[in-house]
């Protein structure tokens, strides 16, 4: 999938959403009130209003703005998997925004007083889950890439003596994450104290959720691969030695390979991606890859391969 095709695929759903919105608006223009209901509370009654022309342009503006954002993200992702994820999430987002805006216009059509407009939200939510998921899956399938290239060189292996115990451990501290996470948590706390708690609470939760992965310890030992936060014992990522076939040191690109940073889940590939660059890649017997960005990954991979080889040998001798 080249850059142009990828960008077109990402931008297209937003173009369709903007076009559909404008068309529905135009078709119902004569039956729309001058002041439209544009925001609805949870019980489906209107609680936000906007002029008709302003509603049209702000709707188109939101779709185009988010569309440009996703297209830029897809263009920035240099490799396939990340761009694919961006395109799929983008398509789902386009449908979500487009559907919500069109539903608003439909709810407003034919009412004399915009306060009478109704939008049953739970009904909409159920529909969105299916439509958004289906669109995302479709674009995911359309944006598929070829098979991943096989590793060029044989993975490193550290031969271990019988009875020898070995462990490798290293911390990954991401200051680029620690500082924003702290700032967001503090801002949330301030809002919680002096502002609306509905805004403050999610901010505090977001800040606290990011904090544990700002400093993690990666350990390779007789039990397999373990990644824990240095601050709290949970959450932790553990891949038991039994389930590992082999390990290798790879170079990854956060945007291109995983479509971003953090704990990333892709089909057959999961990763704790805190930066681009050297990473430890562990393959399991189920065919899934676990990737952790960490320095000196070659040593870790060599030790893991040595441990796996000895474990397999011991199991064979035991049978």
């Amino acid at each position: 999938m080249n850059v142009v095709r990828r960008c077109v695929l990402t931008a297209a759903p937003f173009g369709v959403a903007a076009g559909a919105y404008a068309a529905v608006f135009r078709a119902g223009h004569d039956r729309l009130p001058d002041r439209m209901a544009t925001h609805f509370s949870l019980d489906g009654t209107a609680d936000g209003f906007m002029g008709r022309t302003a509603a049209l342009w702000s709707g188109v503006g939101v779709i185009c703005g988010v569309g440009v954002l996703f297209t830029v993200l897809a263009a920035v992702a240099m490799k396939g998997a990340g761009a694919r994820l961006t395109a799929a999430v983008g398509a789902g987002t386009a449908v979500l925004i487009g559907y919500a805006l069109i539903a608003t216009v439909v709810a407003d059509t034919g009412v004399d007083d915009p306060a009478d407009a109704r939008l049953p939200l739970w009904h909409l939510a159920v529909l969105l889950v299916f439509v958004v998921a289906a669109t995302g899956a479709l674009v995911w399938w359309l944006a598929r890439t070829g098979p991943r290239p096989a590793p060029a060189s044989a993975p490193p292996s550290l031969p271990l003596a019988e009875g020898e115990m070995a462990a490798w451990t290293r911390t990954v501290v991401t200051r680029a994450l620690l500082i924003p996470a702290g700032a967001v948590a503090l801002a949330g706390l301030g809002t919680l104290l002096f502002g609306p708690w509905q805004v403050g609470l999610p901010l505090v939760a977001l800040g606290l959720a990011c904090a544990p992965i700002a400093a993690v310890r990666v350990t390779v030992d007789r039990r397999g691969l373990t990644v824990t936060s240095t601050l709290v014992p949970r959450p932790r990522l553990h891949v038991p030695l039994d389930g590992i076939t082999d390990a290798d040191s790879t170079r990854i690109d956060a945007m291109g390979d995983f479509g971003g940073w953090g704990y990333r889940i892709l089909p057959h590939r999961r990763g704790l991606v805190l930066r681009s660059g050297e990473a430890l890649s562990v393959r399991t017997v189920k065919g899934r890859d676990y990737v952790v960005t960490v320095d000196d990954a070659t040593t870790a991979a060599a030790l893991l391969n040595g441990l796996v080889a000895r474990h397999v040998g011991e199991r064979a001798a035991g049978c």
Binding site: M165, A166, A167, T169, T219, R222, T230
Partner: peptide, 21 residues
């Protein structure tokens, strides 16, 4: 240099569990 000045060593409890000592 793979353990830099100021770097925290793994806690003794974790090393003990890793090495089974």
């Amino acid at each position: 240099g793979s353990a830099a000045p100021g770097e925290r060593l793994p806690p003794a409890r974790q090393v003990a569990a890793s090495l089974n000592v």
